[in-house]
Design a protein around this nucleic acid. Structure first.
Lengths: 195, 195
DNA sequence: CAAATAAACTTTACACCGTCAAGTTTCGCG
DNA sequence: CGCGAAACTTGACGGTGTAAAGTTTATTTG
């Protein structure tokens, strides 16, 4: 079989990642520590070393899992939208925002300065999948410069999400915040959708 | 005199903040540590405790200084712009981006999850000053909902800056990146300027 | 089936960190 | 001049990442 089952614990690697997500959610991104997730999983403090050579590797794995749920959040929002291409883009943005607010800790980590994703194929695949959603929904508007359109949408929604997550005093997550974003999105000229 | 000159060092508090900025710039936001900045300033590891009760306080002071330079960067860019109100907004955004790219470490910290600014008056003043610039330049366009206009501009430029600083593979700082932002900004409908 | 091998995990140890509790030096002021 | 207070040093404690060595368990192999 391809997936080898660990001997003692059951599936320590997955348990450590989940513990990491829980820890980040409850105590913030900087609270992620090898010894804490080890204690949560009920193993010794050096047990994680066999699965993650360093804290950076654990963080990378947690962030990769975050990207997968992030992609799923956008896809779920898109699936509920059955309107124009512009409605689809807006729906994806709302899925983007809901993830950022629901998983603010790992969201900060995903787009923080501590991610060196280019060297990890798992993280690279996960983040490429997320960017792939953006590319797909922007395709109908990308007449001449696709990257320009993608970056514009991404910057707007990411900036809004980041400012809210950073605890900006004039910006609180919630139902009203989604309405505010709809208004912001309305100011964006994406051109006419084709095909 | 209001500013009391320290006895031994000269001006340790300012030296620690500058060392913190240098350290963050060279080794990243997470490398900021009390013991390192103390060593940089040539004092013992416990000396900073007298000026900053905890690492969080040091970080807050460094972030506040970052906000002051951030505001100065936007003001400098605005001063060079002598065009329409829309040109002024664009210029401020370019000043925003230049700061984010030149001081990417402290920029990450400023908008990261570790800032609890509401309790520090110095940081609050510094960040309010930065937001004040945004409010001022958006005022000509704020017909009905000023906050909406401000948030739209802020989100777009902040998202773009954050994605670039986070090391996004499809987005590198530099001259070309400013051109890309000009294109993005052109897609934004701010309405007609008044007064 | 039993022995050998490899993997998972534990224990121990070390350097670095933030922080507290003292002690020491130096400045400012009466 | 001396005395109090401020600035700084020294030492210690618990917590962290990580490396090395030892122990337990599962898988593979003869």
């Amino acid at each position: 079989m391809p997936t080898k089952k660990p001997h003692h614990h059951g599936n320590l690697r997955a348990a450590l990642i989940q513990a990491g997500l829980d820890l980040i959610q409850s105590e913030g991104p900087d609270a992620l520590s090898i010894r804490k997730v080890a204690a949560m999983a009920g193993v010794s403090h050096a047990a994680p070393a066999h699965h993650f050579p360093s804290l950076a590797h654990l963080r990378t794995a947690v962030v990769a899992e975050g990207y997968r749920r992030f992609t799923a959040s956008m896809e779920a929002a898109i699936a509920e939208a059955d309107g124009t291409p512009r409605d689809v883009v807006l729906a994806a943005c709302l899925g983007y925002l809901r993830f950022a607010w629901a998983y603010s800790g790992v969201f900060s980590l995903m787009f923080g300065p501590n991610v060196h994703g280019h060297d990890d194929p798992d993280l690279r695949d996960a983040s490429d999948a997320a960017y792939g959603v953006l590319v797909r929904i922007c395709a109908p508007f990308a007449k001449d410069d696709a990257v320009q359109t993608e970056l514009t949408v991404w910057s707007l929604v990411h900036g809004y999400a980041s400012l809210a997550v950073a605890g900006n005093r004039r910006l609180e997550p919630g139902e009203a915040a989604e309405e505010v974003f709809r208004g912001m999105f309305a100011k964006l000229d994406l051109g006419a959708a084709e095909a």
